[in-house]
Amino acid sequence: MSAFSTDTLATSAQTAESPALIRERKDRRRALGLLTPGLIWMALFMVLPMVMVVYVSFWTQTTFAVNSELTTASWERFLSSPTYLSAIWTTLRIWLIVLVLTILVGYPVALFIGLFVRNKTIQTALLVACVIPFWTSFLIRVIAWRPMLGTEGAINTILLKLGVISEPLTFLLFSEFSVLVGMTQIYCVFMVGPITFMLGRIDISVIEAARDLGASFGTVFRRIILPLSLPGVMVGSIFVSVMVLGEFATAASLSGRKVNLLGNIIVSQVGSLKWAFAAVAGVVLTIIITAVIALALRLVDLRKEM
């Protein structure tokens, strides 16, 4: 009798699906459902255009038009022209300097907000205060540097009045300097945010424990706080890098045409209908950004740290 009942149980388990299996399938269907809109969006508006850009970069460029005959002429011209190669170099240099500056300016701010302000409300208020400049348009924020840095601008006037200088400093505006200042100011907040977040997650008792074990504040910072906040620095760096590498507006309005970034080249080439050439610059820029992000992710294992 007992053998018989086990038999029937076994067969019924085989014919009817087990609840676990049904549930698993349902979960998988839901996951797919959640993924689909994003996947479609990315495919239509990111993957497809990227493929198109790469494709167009091999098109034939004539003075006022492109045709789809494939050629490497645009690539050859780009890679053999000192103007464009130096644009790559300028882009990388500006990116690195701005990255370092945003870390140098942003980290102490984040340290203050994330670690020294214990009250969550004040923390949030301070972070919001950092974002307030973003309530005006990007262009206004950039152009606002002109009356600040110009030969008759605020800084020169003050320095002249104080007698520190006898004639206006001309390197302040329409130079690489003004581009660096502008970009650092604009992108700093993207560094402050992630670092503050990481610092805010550090358990205060961990810092107290390090102090209790005899470490001075400097040592605690170097050995505990800094390493624990590195993922934040890395996320901030990725934000800043992606934005600075693709920048053109700050350079266009503050450099007086002295600083040519890859972004500026794309804008001017598109402006003069050189689509194939703009596509080459676009592909180069994409490769650089991808390499930078890959490098950043190499340095800190975000999956482990977050």
């Binding site: 358990d203 107290e208 424990a209 209790d212 624990l228």
Partner: peptide, 12 residues
């Protein structure tokens, strides 16, 4: 010496 209730080990 202070032994914390939540241990407060250095996570990294």
């Amino acid at each position: 010496g202070f032994v914390f209730q939540n241990f407060a080990l250095f996570p990294h």
